[in-house]
Write a protein that binds this DNA or RNA. Sequence first.
DNA 1: GCCACTATATATCGCTTCGATATATCTGCA
DNA 2: TGCAGATATATCGAAGCGATATATAGTGGC
Lengths: 182, 182
Amino acid sequence: MEQLNATAYVILGFVRGEPRSGYEIKALVDNSTRFFWAASYGQIYPELKRLTEAGLIVGSDVPTGSRKRTVYEITADGEEELRAWLRQPPQTFEMRDEGLLKLFFADALPREEGLEILRSMKAQRLAIYERLRAIEQMKGELEDPFPMIVLRGGLEFTQWFAQWCERMEAQLLDAAPEKRSK
Amino acid sequence: MEQLNATAYVILGFVRGEPRSGYEIKALVDNSTRFFWAASYGQIYPELKRLTEAGLIVGSDVPTGSRKRTVYEITADGEEELRAWLRQPPQTFEMRDEGLLKLFFADALPREEGLEILRSMKAQRLAIYERLRAIEQMKGELEDPFPMIVLRGGLEFTQWFAQWCERMEAQLLDAAPEKRSK
DNA sequence: GCCACTATATATCGCTTCGATATATCTGCA
DNA sequence: TGCAGATATATCGAAGCGATATATAGTGGC
């Protein structure tokens, strides 16, 4: 069998336990893994086909009235494939942070405007913090432990980042106090 | 003028100060912004053309022997465009972390193997820490302050992440001490 | 002087991913 | 009854990424 991509494992992970439609999977992704692994319809639907052909999931038609709806569940092979992947050491780690990029080039601006970038970044973090908090409230205690650990990790990281912005702002003000009054 | 993408500003940022070839820009990116904003040759060379057409940079041919070489420098318009972008609040923030993804689905594994994911993630962070340290050593004190602030931030973040992995491992061992001896 | 290897330099191709949108049906509720 | 919003599947174009092709320049070893 061909190598599966990570999005395939996102699907396997979400159809494990209970059957899901492509639409449901997309909604689950958008409220959870999307912060560290996004997936679009353009990936999900073709991937559901491939996984079905590979025998890792099976679909059943469960129409609602006259609207067709296919839910997929994981097969024994699929479970095994998922576990095998989970046992491999993770590779990919990527980030795209426009804030850090701007900060990196901030020497092109007068000092005061460089500080403004740090303030924007902090505000951005705080906004994300609220979104994650809302998700945390939504999920009860009922979940498997690991998704909650990851969510709490996201909250901690976001807080850490916001504080880093604050610290760097203070540090720059200390380093050039004569610019303060400008 | 059409909207520029972030890669265009990476180029503007790097040709500011001194003229650079496409090859040099790629090398600079790979040792700095690549950790939060990567760029490939496939983006850089076409972008150099677009920026030239837009009058934001100008190229001059500086051949070495019979090998052609074009270095680009920023124009006054380019400087202004860069500063205008730096003043906009940053938007994009994305992450793809295969480790967090695996951790999220770790309930599919026996507890001990879930802990193994955290150990791999920690090891991965420590490896990145060493790479960043090497870059820090390489750069002297001579730089503009902001690139160094961002680099040190990367080091701090990497350390924080490694410690988080450690803490989560300990927490899980505490929560299920009966599994410890398995 | 020659060879092998690496660095410099530009260019391009295929694949994946992203975001947006098209199409259609169902539900809630004013 | 109407219609906004949720459910469901599918697809397209643009952008990004990694790898590689092509070529020349420098460098170290023999």
